[in-house]
Amino acid sequence: MLVKEFKVLLPLTVEEYQVAQLFSVAEASKNETGGGEGIEVLKNEPYTDHPLLGGRYTKGQYTYKIYHLKSKVPSFIRMLAPEGALEVHEEAWNAYPYCKTVISNPGYMKDGFVITIETLHSTGSNLLENAHELQGERLKMREVCIIDIASDPVKPVDYKSIEDPKKFKSEKTGRGPLVLPDWYNKIKPMMTCYKLVTCEFKWFGLQTRVEKFIQDAERRLFTNFHRQVFCWMDRWHGMTIEDIRRLEDKTKEELSRQITEGQVRGMKGD
């Protein structure tokens, strides 16, 4: 088991991020879907019966998705896994500002593979020491990684000039570009996403290698995604949750059609 907490610094309010995240998830899903791979949305509905963070958050929006991966996993896994095994299921309980996501592979790995992502969204950049209230062994195991969306390196294949926070300036809000080395200490508003990732891959001989790959992939995903969140600001700023729900319904229909068409899109495994 590997446990990492990624602390993502963002020049947004917590209220803005709720809309920004949902908008960006919908858009990014379309960018990752095509050619038989990508995301299939099965459920997107309110829930009231799943307490999170010690019962502090009890209701929100539940989603159930299937990710058809194939080329999006590393080559050594593609060589070992049978046809149909590279499909993962994602359940998410979004009780904003707290969210929990569980990713599994029930068709092949069953309880031998699970990734749990727990996220707390909090105002400011004065980083909380233990946002998820960990205790015992999990707290000892946890490794903390701070993500700077402007300065952290991205892979050349992931880089887009229009999604570079050092080059983007919002016409709607005037925020950006994020050019100062310590921009997160000098501008407002500011918030932090505390994303706790716990991954288990129970496969003898591959566990350490795969768990490290998963954590590296999560960091890559969080970095790229939040660069998009910021640089897409003029697209989502001013939208309401009602606007987002309509967008999600439309996106679900587009993904159902898009997954069977064209070429494979988006991020690929090494």
Rank of each mutant, 00 (worst) to 15 (best):
L196V: 08
W203V: 15
E87P: 05
I115V: 15
K186W: 09
R245E: 13
E200P: 00
L221M: 15
C199F: 01
E32R: 04
K195W: 00
L69Y: 00
L178A: 04
R219T: 06
E83G: 14
G124S: 05
E32H: 09
V157W: 02
N224G: 14
D243R: 05
K140D: 08
T192P: 01
L12H: 08
V73Q: 07
L120S: 12
H50A: 12
K250F: 12
S71V: 06
V102P: 06
F222Y: 06
I117E: 13
Y159C: 05
V157H: 04
I259N: 06
F168G: 04
Y98M: 02
K70A: 14
T33S: 11
H132N: 07
V264F: 08
A217Q: 05
V157N: 03
L120K: 12
T101G: 03
R257S: 14
H89L: 13
G112P: 00
H89E: 14
E171K: 13
I214V: 15
L42M: 10
P106T: 13
Y184Q: 11
R56G: 12
N130A: 11
E87Y: 06
D158L: 09
W232Q: 13
F6T: 01
I241T: 05
K252W: 02
F168M: 04
N126D: 15
W232P: 04
T198P: 01
C231P: 05
L196F: 08
S161W: 10
R220M: 13
H50S: 08
K70C: 07
E211K: 05
L247Q: 08
E211H: 04
P165F: 06
D152Q: 01
Y62R: 06
C231E: 01
M141K: 15
D49I: 01
D164I: 07
L12N: 02
D216E: 13
G238K: 01
L9V: 03
I214E: 08
H132G: 08
D148Q: 07
D249A: 15
H226D: 06
T198C: 10
N185G: 11
A85L: 07
H68M: 10
R257V: 11
V19T: 04
H50N: 13
E143Y: 03
M79K: 12
F222D: 02
L127Y: 05
V197F: 00
T58L: 08
T58D: 02
P156Q: 02
M233T: 01
T48D: 12
V8E: 02
S151H: 15
T33C: 08
K155N: 10
H50G: 09
L10I: 09
V179R: 14
I187L: 10
E118A: 10
P106K: 09
K202N: 10
G55K: 03
G112V: 04
M141Q: 15
E5I: 00
S75C: 07
G124K: 01
I77F: 06
F113Q: 02
V102D: 11
L22A: 14
L42K: 13
G35P: 00
L10N: 07
E27T: 11
T58K: 15
M79G: 05
S71C: 07
V179E: 09
P74S: 02
